[in-house]
Simulated scan of single mutants.
Amino acid sequence: MDKLNFKHLFFIICATAIPALKTYPQIFMREAGKDSWICTIIAGIIIIIYFNYICKVCVKNNSFSLYEIYTSVFGKIIGNILFIFFLLTLFLSLFGSASLETNVVHTNLFIESPNWYIALFIVLPGLYVMIKGKNAIMLVLIANMTISIINGTNLYMLTYPFKEYNRLFPIFENGVNIKFLMGIIKALGLYSAVYTVMPYLGEIKEKEKIRRCSTFSLIFVAQMIVISTNGILTTFDVERANAIIYPKLIQTQLISYFGFIASGEFYVIFQVLTGWFAKYMATFLAIFLILKEFNIKRMWNVKVLPYTISGVIYIGVLCITNDLLNLFKYINFYSYMCLINFFIIPVIIFIIFDFKSRRKVPKAQC
C-alpha cells in the first residue's frame, strides 16, 4: 500500500470531525442553548491545541505507532487494555456512521423502505471500496468531502436571508453555569473524533509538515462548525431547533429563489450522505491500520476481515436504527466514549510519553 501525501490529511480530518457536529448539534445545544456556538468555539480551540501537541510529540520523537506509545507508557497489560478501548471506540464510530446515514435516508427520503434495505446501500459500497484498497478509499474521501464542503458553502449563501442574528442575544443570559460547561464537554467529545486520524500519521511521507497541515485543517473545521451551529440558532428559536430531529434539513426548506430553486433539502441530504460515508470509510481504514499493529495484515490479502467487520456493522445498524430514541441515546453515549478514549486518555498518555522522552535525552548525551 502506497504512502499518503500530507495534503491527504486535510480530507481525512474533515471526514472524521465535521459530520457528527453538523448533523446532530442537539447533543450540545440541549445543554448550552443559544450559547452553543460559543461552546463550539471553545471546544474548537481546545481541540486545535490538543491535536497540535500530540502531533508535535509524535514528530519530535519520530514515533507514530500508537500501540508502542500506549504500551511504553503503561506497560503491556494496561497499555493493551487502553489500546483495545481505543479500537472499540473506532468500532462505535463505524456503527454510528452507518446508523446515522441509514436513519437520515429512512426518515427524510424513503420512509416506507425498511432500515435493513437502506443499510445494504451503505455497508456493501463500503465493503467494495475497502477491498479495492487505500487508493480507492482516499479517492472516495477527497470526492465526498469536496462535494460536502461545496454544498455547505452554497447552503450558507442560500439560507443567509432567512437568518435573524438577534436570536443569539443576550449572550450568557444564565451565566457560565454547569449546562454551558456540559455543552463544551459534549462538543469536545464530538470534536475529538479527529483522533481517528492518528493511525494515518505513520503512513504520511512528509512527517515535518503534519503539524502545519493538521492545524490548518482543524481551523477550517472549527469555523465550519461554528458557522453551521450559528446558522441553526439564527434560523430557529433554540427551543424549536432542539425539538427537530435533523434541523439542517428543515432549515433548507425555507430556500426559494427565482421561482424554480425551491427547498435546498437535496443539498443538505447529499451533504450528509457524502460526509457520513467519508467518515465511515476513514474509520474503516483506520481500524485496518491499527490491526496491522497486531500482525493481522494477512487477513487484508485474503479479504476475510473486511467481510467480517461489514457483517458485524450491518447487524449492529439494524439493532440501533429500529428505534429513533435508542439511536440518539447511542449518539449521546458515543460522545462520552469519544471524550474518554479520544481525548482524556490520549492527553494523559502523550504527556507522560513526552516527559519520559525528555528524561531519556540527557542520559543519552552523557
Rank of each mutant, 00 (worst) to 15 (best):
M1I: 14
K3L: 12
N5I: 00
N5T: 05
F6I: 12
F10C: 00
I18A: 01
P19D: 11
L21I: 05
L21M: 09
K22A: 13
T23M: 14
P25M: 01
I27C: 04
F28H: 09
F28W: 11
A32Y: 04
K34H: 06
D35S: 06
T40P: 04
I42P: 05
A43M: 12
G44I: 14
I47L: 12
I48V: 15
I49S: 08
Y50C: 07
I54W: 07
K56L: 09
K56W: 09
C58T: 05
V59S: 09
S65H: 09
E68C: 05
L82N: 00
T89I: 04
T89C: 07
F91L: 13
L92T: 13
T102R: 01
N103W: 07
V105I: 15
L109P: 05
F110Y: 12
E112R: 11
S113I: 10
N115W: 03
L120E: 05
F121M: 08
I122A: 02
G126K: 06
L127E: 07
L127R: 00
Y128P: 06
M130S: 12
K132Q: 15
K134T: 14
K134C: 08
N135H: 08
N135Q: 10
A136H: 10
M138A: 05
L139Y: 11
A143V: 15
A143M: 12
M145W: 07
N151D: 05
G152T: 08
L155N: 06
L158V: 13
V176T: 08
V176K: 13
K179P: 00
I184K: 02
K186H: 14
K186A: 01
Y191L: 02
S192N: 06
S192Y: 01
A193E: 15
A193Y: 09
V197G: 05
V197I: 15
M198C: 15
P199C: 03
Y200T: 00
E203L: 13
K207Q: 15
K209T: 05
K209E: 14
K209S: 14
R211N: 10
R211E: 12
R211G: 09
S214R: 00
F216D: 00
F220P: 07
F220E: 08
F220R: 00
V221L: 09
Q223F: 10
N230I: 06
N230K: 06
A243V: 06
I245K: 04
I245Y: 02
Y257W: 11
F258E: 11
F260I: 11
A262V: 15
S263C: 11
Y267I: 13
F270S: 14
V272G: 05
V272L: 12
T274R: 01
T274G: 00
T274I: 00
K279M: 15
K279Q: 11
M281C: 13
T283N: 01
F284T: 02
I287W: 03
N301S: 12
V304G: 10
P306N: 03
T308I: 15
T308R: 05
S310E: 06
I313L: 13
G316L: 04
G316S: 12
V317I: 11
I320K: 03
T321H: 04
N326R: 10
Y330M: 07
I331N: 03
N332A: 11
S335I: 03
C338N: 15
L339W: 01
I345P: 09
P346G: 03
I348Q: 04
F350V: 11
I351P: 02
I352A: 08
F353D: 07
V361D: 10
C366D: 07
